[in-house]
């Protein structure tokens, strides 16, 4: 409020409803903590005291039915893949997926002789943002989340004929 205080006379502010909705949605995306392997430790460290995830509006939720964003952090194996799909289906629209780390992007260091590793989580669910790194630094993860916020802000949920 400090920037806007004592600046205007009585007036009406006009804006598009689309932009207001998208702005409100983007700054309050609650994430579904789906940590599988090493990248989960970096996700926990990003949510802890030094790099804080709550300052950009993200709160951890443990149930998929209450979350907007799913951060797939770690290697997805073939045994786990059916559960990933089930959890993705349980999320309510509008939902977004972030693939964190090189194992979730494309199989990672296990892509050559891994007989039990799924080479990239985008073989089973659609992904919005890819974050490279093994594991990505907390600053990388925050940059990826800010890009996702930008993507949400450019959406037009109410307009038809896009």
């Amino acid at each position: 409020m400090g920037f806007l205080e004592n600046r205007f006379e009585d007036n009406i502010i006009t804006a598009k409803v689309d932009q207001l909705l998208s702005w409100a949605r983007s700054t309050s995306a609650w994430y579904f903590q789906f940590g599988l392997a090493c990248c989960a430790i970096e996700m926990m460290a990003t949510a802890a005291s030094r790099h804080d995830l709550e300052r950009i509006g993200m709160m951890p939720r443990s149930s998929p039915r209450q979350a907007d964003v799913m951060i797939v952090a770690g290697t997805v194996t073939l045994k786990m893949a059916s559960r990933v799909k089930l959890l993705y289906d349980q999320m309510a629209d509008p939902k977004y997926v972030i693939s964190m780390g090189s194992c979730a992007n494309s199989g990672g260091p296990y892509s050559r002789q891994g007989y039990h590793v799924l080479k990239g989580v985008d073989q089973i669910i659609p992904v919005d943002v890819y974050i490279p790194g093994c594991p990505p630094r907390p600053e990388s993860l925050i940059e990826g989340l800010l890009k996702l916020q930008e993507k949400i802000r450019h959406e037009r949920p109410l307009t038809k004929n896009k």
Partner: peptide, 14 residues
Amino acid sequence: IGYLHRCFEKHCEN
């Protein structure tokens, strides 16, 4: 268990 089996021992042989 086995949901994170990443074939470490097979990798070591190659």
